[in-house]
């Protein structure tokens, strides 16, 4: 394997681990919000970092692995279905918006946050009935707010990351045996 692939793989692995831990910490936060489903969604930071620095296939794969890991360890399989729907919709929209090249990480993140909530509410709609649509407007606003915050954080992470990965001659580390 060439060094570029190794670096990509290492970055993907690290980001997946970070996602998993963020998801775990968030799941321990008390439900202090009046409406279910409202969370900061910081796990979106590594996903978007992957979309920008790696590619959409790795980002989607990492997200899938993370949701499965969380499902088996602490959230349970039922929550898995919600997360998968949210992640699928949000990653699809974010990747498409990024492809246009017109939007920055913050705008893409806002759309991603809202789409994540939309995916979850659609599953809830099937699972528990259409009454959950009552929460839709609140969840859209929450998605915009959470998306804006995670988008800005992702932007800062992306600005910092390449230099912190590559500085001080680490670029020249020889991975061959």
């Amino acid at each position: 394997m060439d060094k570029k692939r190794i670096r990509r793989l290492a970055l993907a692995g690290m980001l997946t681990a970070v996602m998993f831990i963020i998801g775990y910490v968030e799941s321990m936060l008390p439900a202090f919000f009046a409406v279910p489903g409202i969370k900061p969604g910081f796990a979106n930071i590594p996903v978007m970092t992957a979309i920008f620095l790696l590619d959409w296939k790795l980002a989607a794969g990492m997200s899938f692995v993370r949701i499965m890991l969380s499902g088996f360890t602490f959230t349970g399989m039922f929550a898995c279905i919600y997360s998968l729907a949210g992640a699928a919709l949000s990653i699809t929209v974010m990747v498409l918006l990024k492809k246009t090249g017109k939007f920055s990480v913050t705008g893409i993140s806002m759309a991603g946050g809202v789409m994540h909530n939309l995916g979850q509410i659609l599953v809830a709609c099937i699972a528990v009935g259409k009454a959950v649509l009552y929460y839709f407007p609140v969840l859209v606003i929450a998605g915009i707010a959470a998306g804006a915050v995670t988008g800005i954080v992702t932007g800062v992470v992306i600005k910092i990351l390449p230099s912190s990965v590559d500085v001080k001659g680490q670029k020249n580390i020889d991975f061959r045996e």
């Binding site: 705008g107 649509l133 839709f136 407007p137 804006a148 600005k159 390449p162």
Partner: peptide, 25 residues
């Protein structure tokens, strides 16, 4: 990544569309 931007004007369009969706709902 030097030309990487944290905000673009087009982001406001996304925000506006999303707010309109929420308001409509």
């Amino acid at each position: 990544m030097n030309n990487f931007k944290l905000f673009k004007k087009a982001d406001l369009l996304i925000a506006l569309i999303l707010v309109l969706i929420a308001a409509a709902g």
